[in-house]
Design a protein around this nucleic acid. Structure first.
Length: 758
DNA sequence: GACCTGCTGCGGCGTG
């Protein structure tokens, strides 16, 4: 006799489980789950309610996506008869959408709920099928959703007719960026199209600021967003900060990689001009990481290539398998997928040397340790990187940080004497341990993305009245910080550039240039990308290279962890043909960096003042910290902000980059020549006395308007469509994005010696 | 000294 089967409801006894549809319970039961995870338990009743916007903040691999899908699928089963797509999932990466599609697919199949994915790599036939049979769940990128508005505008209301939920995955990756502004606009336009509100569900593992995240998810109604934060991430953290002193080898003059990305042939062994510190770091990485799975984060693509090459040559010299592989955004999809599959495969140890490409997204499980080469760019990035290790039960998160400072000689500038890279790294580690993260930067007006959205709404509706556009995008929309006057100026500016034209009835249409822009596939993204050459080797595409310096056949190159020689360059097809070689140099990539936060700089000053030595410093790092503190006191930076340095004067405000930028622009507008150099401003050709006089004068003067200050900055274009904006608009945008006049003035006041009232 | 992400529609051709 067969023993009675336990019912699904007996398998996972909990209140939330009981709320789920019987078919979803059945699926959970068949998966063999014995209980729901904390995030799931708490998210299910809220999401099933269907009316609330929700943020689910929980560590990766904590069942966060199921916390959304179990109740969503459960709710959708009640509305299967309705037409149209019922849930949208928006993901920042194609690879993430593919991952989710595979995982969600099992559940959906069990429930007979259709699931579709839509991004650039999905075949047109699948897309056509979705358009004919819109139903179930649609997994899509923001860019592809944009393309639906542009190319299927009239049909979109029908396609999305049954929409009840929008899920935004990796919510943090969108906040504050042009892409985030685009996403907000798309979500708002979906609701305008359907003439009703649709519940939004944001998922993230690293949100530093729930209020900012809620305000991003539902602008203006952040207080109503329900936040489910599941903090069961208490893995032990093991840190080591290793210091290195770089001395140039005795060759004259020392060649510098940054000035000559591709050099003539040279000896294949460790180039004799390779920095002493790099060689020592590579030696340590080789001995510490080999035989295990690790991620090594470098701060640039060039550094990724350099270290992969150094490590591979150590593998060859030691006759051991090559375990070190590069991963960055310019490598071909094939090479990157190869690295990703090697990381997922536990049978062979592998260490990926990477940029931020492996910070988030695809699920590569947990690695044994993480290394950071050079001072981290941000505390939140550091947290994200650390979180890649220690994700298996009972395993600590292990991170080694490698910081290099230059050897001191008679010409060493004060910023290097201060060992500021090391101190910045310590400040960031301390803040990380205190669970502080940078607040997302939401000051930008995103005018470039507003231009894109104006063109998109016009394409969607076949034209629009200026008032309609303002209402749809600015008034109640996500660009609500752009007022009517600025919006009118923006439209006029676009008209002058032939981006927009206006019919005699006042209807706005795309102009000649606007038409070309909308009808090119590059229109759908809100961000720019440089023109690049494809790199071919033996008929295979191995990646791409921005070419903004002279190149010629015969030149050598390190790329994808291997050494190459350029055979030919096809300027028309934009293809560089390569062949294997024994020498080479890593290429140079140009790109923007991050902004060091105010809190980090203020913490740096505290560290200089303190005598405490963090336990995670190795011996060299301790010596470097000691040297930095000695220099700090020797320069009297504990009491003074100004330091005479030859013909120049250095200013140390110990404030974030935005405030430093505001101070620099202020001094420039008073006729001074100012350079921004990490922790210091270098004021050229002036004395400390003269600078102090100016600071005293400024601190009691009226603060300038940020927009007037921006008018004096020569280059202000940064967004994709900034070229179509008039100077006045660029000034407003630049001021919002790059200045903090109030804090800059408070900094000036603090650098004024307090004088007794006479 | 400086990262990452994304991308339509259509015509033409070959194959089952």
């Amino acid at each position: 006799m067969v023993p009675p089967q336990p019912t699904p409801s007996a398998a996972v006894p909990s209140h939330s489980y009981e709320l789920l549809d019987r078919r979803v319970q059945q699926w959970i039961y068949e998966k063999g789950w014995t209980q729901l995870r904390d995030a799931q338990e708490r998210a299910i009743p809220v999401i099933l309610g269907g009316a609330d916007d929700v943020i689910v903040a929980a560590a990766t691999a904590s069942g966060k996506t199921e916390a959304a899908w179990l109740p969503i699928c459960s709710a959708l089963l009640d509305h299967q008869a309705e037409a149209g797509v019922k849930a949208l999932y928006i993901g920042p990466l194609k690879a993430l959408i593919n991952d989710q599609f595979d995982r969600l697919g099992q559940l959906c199949e069990h429930l007979s709920l259709p699931a579709h994915r839509w991004h650039g790599d999905v075949p047109g036939s699948r897309k056509a099928h979705m358009l004919r049979n819109p139903d179930g769940i649609l997994l899509i990128t923001p860019e592809s959703l944009e393309s639906l508005f542009v190319n299927h505008g009239p049909a979109l209301a029908r396609i999305l007719a049954g929409l009840r939920y929008v899920v935004v995955d990796e919510l943090h990756s969108f906040i504050g960026s042009e892409r985030g502004a685009q996403l907000q606009s798309l979500l708002h336009r979906v609701e305008l199209l359907l003439r009703r509100r649709v519940a939004r569900i944001g998922l993230s593992a690293t949100l530093g600021d729930f209020t900012a995240a809620a305000d991003f998810l539902r602008p203006g109604r952040a207080a109503a967003v329900k936040v489910i934060s599941s903090d069961d991430d208490n893995a032990e953290i093991r840190l080591q900060l290793r210091g290195y002193v770089d001395s140039r080898p005795p060759r004259n003059p020392p060649p510098r990689i940054t000035t000559a990305p591709l050099l003539e042939p040279q000896e294949p062994e460790d180039a004799s001009d390779e920095s002493v510190a790099r060689v020592a770091i590579a030696d340590h990485l080789f001995s510490a990481l080999r035989g295990r799975d690790n991620l090594v984060f470098a701060n640039s693509k060039a550094a990724v290539e350099t270290f992969t090459d150094l490590l591979n040559r150590r593998s060859i010299a030691n006759r051991v398998p090559e375990e070190f592989v590069p991963h960055h955004g310019n490598l071909s999809k094939e090479l990157r997928e190869h690295v990703e599959s090697r990381l997922k495969d536990r049978s062979m140890p592998v260490t990926a040397i990477c940029t931020s490409t492996l910070e988030m997204g695809i699920d590569i499980g947990s690695v044994d340790s993480v290394a950071q080469l050079g001072a981290p760019a941000s505390v939140s990035g550091l947290r994200q990187r650390l979180g890649r290790s220690g994700r298996r039960q009972g395993q600590p998160a292990v991170m080694r940080l490698y910081v290099t400072e230059d050897e001191i000689n008679e010409r060493t500038p004060p910023a290097d004497m201060l060992r500021s890279q090391l101190v910045q790294t310590i400040a960031m580690v301390e803040l990380l341990l205190e669970k502080w993260y940078e607040a997302p930067d939401t000051a930008d007006l995103h005018l470039s993305t507003l231009v894109q959205q104006i063109l998109s709404v016009i394409a969607q509706r076949g034209g629009a009245q200026p008032g309609q556009l303002f209402d749809a995008l600015c008034g109640a929309g996500p660009f609500n910080r752009v007022d009517k006057t600025s919006f009118a100026a923006l439209l006029r500016s676009l008209g002058r550039h032939d981006v927009l034209s206006q019919s005699t009835e006042g209807l706005l249409l795309a102009g000649g240039l606007g038409d070309k822009i909308v009808n090119n596939y590059a229109f759908y993204s809100a961000f720019t990308s440089p023109e690049e050459y494809r790199l071919h080797a033996n008929g295979r595409n191995i990646g791409s290279l921005p070419v903004d310096y002279p190149i010629a056949p015969g030149m050598l190159l390190i790329f994808g962890g291997r050494r190459w020689k350029i055979v030919s360059i096809d300027n028309r097809q934009k293809v560089i043909e390569l062949t294997r070689s024994s020498g080479g140099r890593p290429p140079s990539f140009s790109g923007g960096g991050g902004e060091v936060a105010d809190t980090v700089r203020q913490r740096m000053k505290q560290i200089y003042h303190s005598t405490e030595v963090p336990r995670y410093l190795d011996q060299v790092a301790q010596q470097l910290l000691d040297q930095g503190r000695s220099a700090f006191h020797r320069y009297h930076l504990d009491n003074e902000a100004i330091l005479d340095w030859g013909n120049d004067t250095l200013l140390f405000p110990w404030r974030g980059d935005r405030i430093m930028n505001t101070l620099a622009a202020t001094f420039t507008s008073h006729g001074l020549e100012v350079g921004q150099d990490g922790v210091a401003l270098t004021v050229h050709g002036t004395t400390g006395k003269a600078l102090q006089d100016l600071i005293d004068e400024l601190s009691v003067s009226q603060r300038p308007s940020p927009v007037d200050l921006a008018a004096k900055v020569p280059t202000k274009e940064s967004g994709k469509y900034d070229a179509f904006l008039d100077e006045d608009l660029l000034n407003v945008a630049y001021a919002a994005r790059s200045f903090d006049v109030a804090e800059a003035w408070s900094s000036l006041k603090s650098m004024t010696p307090s004088r007794p009232q006479s």
